[in-house]
Design a protein around this nucleic acid. Structure first.
Lengths: 218, 218
DNA sequence: AAATTCCTGTTAAAATTATAACATATCAAA
DNA sequence: TTTGATATGTTATAATTTTAACAGGAATTT
């Protein structure tokens, strides 16, 4: 019986993956938990603890082989599964996602972009021709993508999600303002909110200003 | 002496804010921690605990006044400070941010968009004319924005950040692939990584598939 | 007006998460 | 070889975070 991996650990994995990718690209062959901890501003202990949830990838006296560790994390994250995705909505957000996130280098494959706007249909985005959303059902049936990226207006989101679910999609990356949640069923969702980041930054800035005010009053 | 608010609480505040905004827009006047907990899929206890970090906003036997609570959270998050921001980079990500995140309704004001690409300079995005990045120094001096949104290629990011810091900016929302970190100085940073969300989704999907395989083998 | 229900703020307990400590294996150098 | 320095995997401890419990104030009902 495997013990469950906590969300705290899972949430850190993509960050490990990014840093290891950087290291690999810069030609670093090996790294110790201490060195990595300095780069990432976390404790070496946490890194070792995290990695050991999945197995011993390091070697005493040597550290971790960057390429090997990166590959292991890729496996854990499912990046070697060759998952395919369709993108619904070719507005700003959709285009950003299609062009920015280096799908292929992360092991994903974007296989179709859909929109309802007749002005957009037929346009080229990231080497894909935007398709008519009305064809999405037959497209899914034919190509069986595992994920749908929702970059549609909030009013449309729930309807689109329902349709995707009816067509058999079980994983959603949702960029719409409204949260998508499906606790009960075998459906997985990640909601992304750009404005949350902005609000967090705002909080930090305010705190920082308060702190400096107090300090300068001494 | 005020006790420090934990990051776990801070990270939840934007989500509270969004849900309260939704409630307000749907005309809900009051809500209890239990009702809100059902909407948000967290425990009522946590909601009460979180809110009490900042003061007693509710009333026994009544619950919380939606508008009042939303305003209080806005204050806590610094949304009432009238912070202004400039956006560096008018590529896909920059345009998404400029058009999508409802700056104004969140109390922020975007006051300038900059790019180095002469083809983009002069174009209109979200009611702003894209300015020449070479003018950013004098612009900052004149308008004193508090935040910079970095939506530039990863190779340019650190240089841009250094320049912004030299011009006096102290808060950064960074969308570049490369992380920006400034532990030491009085500078606050939020890094956003779209691909992290995708990787987390991938992990969840893989786990879900494993689970179902095991279940169906019974 | 009394009784009952509701629901907060707060304290206490449980659970989780992060950090520290250490035994031991590997590497590198003398 | 032998010795010392590294650095992991793992166990133990500390800190944090979440959940539960409850006293009592406010609203609502009878």
């Amino acid at each position: 019986m495997e013990k469950r991996i906590s969300d705290s650990v899972i949430n850190r994995l993509p960050r490990y993956y990014r840093h290891l990718t950087d290291l690999l690209e810069s030609g670093t062959e090996r790294i110790s938990s201490r060195e990595l901890s300095e780069k990432m501003n976390i404790t070496a202990s946490q890194i070792r603890q995290d990695l050991n949830c999945f197995g011993g990838f390091g070697q005493q006296g040597y550290g971790y082989n960057v390429e090997l560790l990166r590959n292991e994390i890729a496996k854990i994250l499912g990046l070697t599964q060759g998952y395919t995705a369709i993108l619904i909505g070719a507005g700003h957000m959709g285009r950003t996602f299609a062009t920015n996130t280096k799908f292929e280098s992360r092991g994903f494959r974007l296989i179709g972009i859909f929109d309802t706007d007749s002005k957009k249909i037929g346009q080229e985005v990231a080497r894909h021709t935007i398709r008519d959303y009305r064809e999405v059902g037959s497209f899914i049936e034919e190509h069986q993508p595992q994920m749908a990226i929702l970059a549609v207006p909030k009013d449309a989101m729930h309807n689109v999600a329902e349709e995707m679910i009816a067509y058999g999609i079980r994983a959603f990356l949702n960029f719409s303002y409204t949260e998508l949640s499906r606790e009960d069923e075998d459906i997985v969702v990640e909601n992304v909110h750009l404005s949350d980041s902005l609000m967090r930054l705002s909080y930090k800035l305010l705190e920082n200003n308060k702190k400096n005010t107090v300090t300068s009053q001494k």
